[in-house]
Design a protein around this nucleic acid. Sequence first.
DNA 1: AGAAAATGCGACTGCATAGTCATAATTGAC
DNA 2: GTCAATTATGACTATGCAGTCGCATTTTCT
Lengths: 213, 213
Amino acid sequence: MDDEPDPRIEGRASRRATKTRQRLLDAALYIFNTKGIEGCAIEDITESADVGKGTFYRHFMDKLDILRTLLDLAADDLILRMPPTDAPALSFEDRITQLFNAHATLLAERADLFLVFLQGQTMVATRSSSIPGLQPPFARYITALESRLKPVLPDPADVAGARQLAVAIGAIICGNITVGMSILSSKHDVINNLDLARQSLLVGTSQRLRCTV
Amino acid sequence: MDDEPDPRIEGRASRRATKTRQRLLDAALYIFNTKGIEGCAIEDITESADVGKGTFYRHFMDKLDILRTLLDLAADDLILRMPPTDAPALSFEDRITQLFNAHATLLAERADLFLVFLQGQTMVATRSSSIPGLQPPFARYITALESRLKPVLPDPADVAGARQLAVAIGAIICGNITVGMSILSSKHDVINNLDLARQSLLVGTSQRLRCTV
DNA sequence: AGAAAATGCGACTGCATAGTCATAATTGAC
DNA sequence: GTCAATTATGACTATGCAGTCGCATTTTCT
């Protein structure tokens, strides 16, 4: 009688769907890092997720669609690990360290997400034309870095400078991971190299930009 | 009578084969940058090279084989643009600049080669297990950087330091190109960012390593 | 309970493509 | 010119996979 459906709780069916969707995302992430994004078949994903093939198409349009979703999640995660935009502006040095840490913790805790992010980035960089709709997460990512850097620059109105620094940070970090992993360094070595890079960037950039460190 | 075959000149047949092979390499390079390495079919390559499909298999085992060849060529080209190992050791600053220039000229003159190199690097970094034999060119590349850095370090016996710096340079450059292109900067902007990165690296690293600049 | 809606399933169709092979064309030797 | 060796060809086979669709299962509503 009085067991009215609680509106805060979505129904069983919807929850089941959400769970299945999540299984597909997890499986895709795993397969993308194993056989590569383009080297894998939809059935590899559904097999790994232990769902029927048709189920995939109930949740995603095609492989590009689920990849887009994963790249968005990766960008979200990365951005969430950055200091909030309304955080008190610390020193230049502290802010840079915060931003490096955001990447380092994602690499340490969710290397799978980060590696798919890097794969997608290379896809966009080398042939954005043939893979529509994959670019936005990367733009969001750089913009997020930019907004966190602006407050600690000597001239907060220097938009171009903030963007250049944002690209430089993204480049150093993504580059260190890609190059480090490509010559088969351990994740530990990569994180260690990242710290050296952070120090160099700090010294080199603050001098160039005449920041107060 | 006396028109003996000149041993310096290989026969017509062999020259024809070499030319066909080169056509296939050129076509593969073009297609890899257009449809992506994994997104392209062998027939895309032979079609673009204007040769029969069977001809491809006369020259290469499979797609991985021709990719390996291209990555080797790219690494060769990059290394050839670096100062020779026996070049007189200049200052730390000059050597770093030489190494950056090696990359910058390859990007300017043979962007296609460089972009395939970056695609391959990401493939190896994110799933080296599933693509056997693609790693060596990248190891050679880092080793080449290393050997050019050792002579200008304060302690030329510091092997680990040379390697770290080599990775750092590779990372900054490859990262700047990948990230730059992924957010759709022009090649010109990328090269400009590279120069800023060079300056920062120079200041930051020479201070950290106590180099004489 | 019974009807309707939402979710999951996997056999099936059609197409794309890897790799082969018998044949053709070109080249080199004599 | 003739024969042997090298190189090129593309029709063909066999496989793998994307995407569909009718049906089964589960959930929701009344």
